[in-house]
Design a protein around this nucleic acid. Sequence first.
DNA 1: GGAGTGAGTTGGATTTTCCAACTGACTTGT
DNA 2: ACAAGTCAGTTGGAAAATCCAACTCACTCC
Lengths: 160, 160
Amino acid sequence: MNRPTDMAVDAPRACFIAAGLDVLGERWALLALREMSLGVHRFDQIARNTGASRDILVGRLRTLESQGVIERVQYSERPPRYEYHLTASGAEVAPILISLAAWSSTWMRDETPRASYRHSCGADLKPVVSCADCGEEFTPGSLVLGPLVSAAGADPASDQ
Amino acid sequence: MNRPTDMAVDAPRACFIAAGLDVLGERWALLALREMSLGVHRFDQIARNTGASRDILVGRLRTLESQGVIERVQYSERPPRYEYHLTASGAEVAPILISLAAWSSTWMRDETPRASYRHSCGADLKPVVSCADCGEEFTPGSLVLGPLVSAAGADPASDQ
DNA sequence: GGAGTGAGTTGGATTTTCCAACTGACTTGT
DNA sequence: ACAAGTCAGTTGGAAAATCCAACTCACTCC
């Protein structure tokens, strides 16, 4: 009944990139996941290695846990102590970290020496992102919008 | 247990992931880049499609410009009007967006329908990240710390 | 002349983050 | 035994970032 000019002030794009950022895009979240990927699982060490304030970090870890990205694993009973581990979902954040590290080491333009990353084969980090279907490498611009869909949604019960 | 590089015991890890997040990790930055990747270059439309406040968005765009990730291109002289375009550096943010979209569409566990993404070949987004050197796929855990190095650093004069 | 477009800017409220110190329940060293 | 240290948080207040709606300025279109 109404058309171009009338209502619906364009709402922000609801896409999977935006949704992913709701979970992973808050400050310190990806750095905390980086630590767990590197085998650091304890609160104090994660706080030290990321530089996050302890109070903020608690909040992030709780959010990531509630989203099923990490899980708290008890390693001491008497004082109850927990460590943080990646779930299957969290482990699959790796490609994001890899892309970020690769972009950064290519395009950062200061001289600051920083820890680099490598593939476990020993080579410098040079990830190639290709399409599982056609095998072609993704080039800038080869990412295109698809239809509206719901996420695959790993079921919350399936922990490792 | 974990001391891959020898760093001061209490300093946050200075790595390329952290450095990348300094540039791309602020709120709205990646969504603005998403818009430009999708061919949206004007301020008003970027603001609408991302949902960012206009004042904050101005700040982000200025930061991204100063980092050489995007550039302002004048498209009208009187009134001076600019649009925002990805530089070579910005175009290479695509793998990050792709990984994020793929992770999100796999692991988000609500039913909300969202815009999905595809490869330009038409297939659903299923990126495979592999090592340019050995060809092996990156598996969770195959990202390992390397030595301290400076970034390749696109030369600051070449942004135009 | 009035409405509309586009790219911002402004001021004030709200939210998030930062920081250092503190807690409580242990464990280890002397 | 007692002091000191470890660990995973909490707490409260200050500082910074963000949100929001309205406003500006310079045009163009009807």
